[in-house]
Design a protein around this nucleic acid. Structure first.
Lengths: 219, 219
DNA sequence: TACAATATTTAGGTAAGACTAAAATCTTGT
DNA sequence: ACAAGATTTTAGTCTTACCTAAATATTGTA
């Protein structure tokens, strides 16, 4: 039987997953920055995760980490908890999409599998969280996501916002004000090559967005 | 500004509250037993809680601890979380009264004040949890509880079950089967002085209960 | 290709919160 | 009044997960 993972380890695995989704390996520094922890601490934990049995990560000195099968399953479990909780805080307690992240961040580590099942069922097994992020299935597969970053689109192209990859409440409130939420149709009107600004049509309004934002919206 | 209390400290305070409700002080041993922790560990923590500023407990060697005002407030906060969560798990996720304790035990330490307010409001500010235990008010007063243990009642007396002081799922399921839940009227039919058994009428059924149970039901 | 800048790891510590073994202190029965 | 037994505390460790300072490895560029 596998021991339950500590909250700290769950956080490492979740963040490693997020850094390695694309297939690359997560560097010590990147993880340290993401977790708000010193780099040496990360090295230490990563060595521990690599030598635990079963190993949760694969680790080669100076080359970063990737998740093992075991590690990935654990990471997806945490992410499923997080996204289900976000959906559920919005749907049943009237949270807004900028308020859910912090609450879910703490709850995700302590809810039981029973609780997970109950909220999933109560919501009719949702497939996306309030930011449009796909929710891992009950058997811990991440649904494929075909969306592309808005930043890679060019004038003449258009589409529907699929997901918003952000948790900063200020940014989320700003996006909501602009109507840039999942499900909304947008049209790229203009592109300025030097600052990478995109001019969009959202509904009847026109907005200019910088790379900071366009790289976080997926179409 | 007061630092947030660790989960461990929250647990100590909650359990000290429960042991000292009557006014007596909580002994090291009693706390150790209740928390499932060794007695020396309890001594250590209690010393720490007594010398923290602000002090959370008052402690005199070999004489147990009581809560300070600060400590009591913190304990009631945790208990409010716990009981609101229990109520809410039952009301909105279909938990049964024997399933809620364990889940609430973990959630109580991580929910925000905002979350607390939201579930309280969603339920219309309930005054009792599913076991009939009073829920501390938002300003952290414990509502007075006038109930008396069933074990102190004698033939001819009768009343309504106010609360059930138990968290063991097996016991709770057993009580539910017998119809011994809050709100139910009972009548004491007989008392046997040697084993302290009470014979009750519950609805149209008659049941004999030992002290183990009658001391946990409050009328 | 060598070296400076950057990234990573090693070494050595700290704080929380638990433990066991042993010492000290309380309580109680006679 | 005091010894036996129970309770409590002291002393000394352990684990987890973090830290800083210093050493080492990697990489981009002159």
């Amino acid at each position: 039987m596998n021991k339950p993972l500590t909250i700290s380890i769950q956080d490492y695995l979740k963040n490693i997953y997020e850094l390695t989704e694309n297939g690359e390996s997560a560097t010590t520094n990147a993880l340290a920055k993401k977790l708000n922890i010193s780099a040496p601490s990360v090295t230490g934990m990563v060595q521990k995760l690599a030598s635990s049995k079963p190993a949760l990560v694969e680790y080669h000195k100076h080359q970063g980490v990737t998740l093992t099968q075991e590690g990935k399953k654990a990471a997806l479990e945490v992410i499923r908890h997080h996204r289900l909780l976000e959906a559920w805080l919005v749907q049943t307690l009237g949270y807004s999409w900028d308020e859910v992240h912090e609450e879910a961040e703490r709850l995700e580590h302590v809810i039981s599998e029973d609780f997970e099942r109950r909220i999933a069922a109560a919501m009719g097994h949702p497939v996306r969280d309030p930011h449009g992020e796909p929710i891992p299935t009950e058997d811990l597969k991440m649904p494929p996501d075909e969306s592309t970053p808005l930043s890679s689109m060019r004038p003449g192209e258009s589409g529907t916002i699929q997901r918003v990859d952000a948790s900063d409440p200020t940014l989320l409130r700003y996006l909501e004000e602009l109507g840039l939420v999942p499900g909304v149709k947008i049209q790229v009107i203009d592109y300025s090559p030097f600052d990478h600004n995109l001019t969009l049509k959202v509904g009847r309004k026109t907005t200019v967005l910088g790379l900071n934002i366009t790289s976080k919206l997926f179409i």
